[in-house]
Write a protein that binds this DNA or RNA. Structure first.
Lengths: 103, 103
DNA sequence: GACATATTTCGATGATTAGCTAAATATCGA
DNA sequence: TCGATATTTAGCTAATCATCGAAATATGTC
């Protein structure tokens, strides 16, 4: 789960995931959406793979990346529920009323 | 939103947020839960403030940090919804006053 | 086999980050 | 005012990170 959050920390990688939400795409196809070099994109893909957020499927000379939505979902939902955010079985977690002060 | 994800990328900071989920705590009180130095913790607090995930309320010599749940919620839920995850919006989460830490 | 294509690995670089100790700042109580 | 306490700022180091160009790897085509 730490790796997932580390992976989500970079805007490029979050954008890659959003692109993959629509359909699987090849590395080159994904790269076209960004202005960074292909080695850099490749490194981003490696981080996403390492976090198990995508899987890579090689067909011939191309590599197709596919979003592993369940992994993203589990991490995000799991974390959210620890805070009582989102769809959650009503947990007995006390919350603090907002107060909006700053020094 | 980028700052929020950057802030969430560090396990210490995620843990701080989870501690603050229960009740507001002072910087020193929070620091006791970790094995890093206080200046290091102070830097983590600064990142969380910068991401607007907490706010700081100075009372006398101590500074009390409080989780801004709505900001966390908005970021997490917003991102989740881009993926169709965790569709259900947070119902009523009971707002229970903090355990009195005598001032 | 030679060549083009898709992608990764290598090696380097500059930026950011987490960590530390020491020092500064601010507040409180005597 | 002095000393204790809480927290931050300053200055530093080591590690991690995003990025690049060049080279390597693998595949398909002629």
């Amino acid at each position: 789960m730490n790796k997932v959050f580390k992976a989500l920390a970079d805007p490029t990688r979050r954008r890659v995931l959003e692109l993959l939400r629509q359909r699987p795409m090849t590395a080159g196809e994904l790269s076209e959406h960004f202005e960074v070099s292909k080695p850099t994109m490749s490194a981003h893909f490696a981080v996403l793979r390492e976090a198990d957020l995508v899987d890579a499927h090689k067909q011939g000379v191309t590599i197709t990346y596919r979003l592993k939505l369940s992994v993203l979902e589990e991490a995000l939902l799991g974390f959210s529920q620890a805070f009582g955010i989102g769809a959650a079985p009503s947990a007995d977690i006390p919350n603090i009323p907002p107060k909006e002060t700053r020094s």
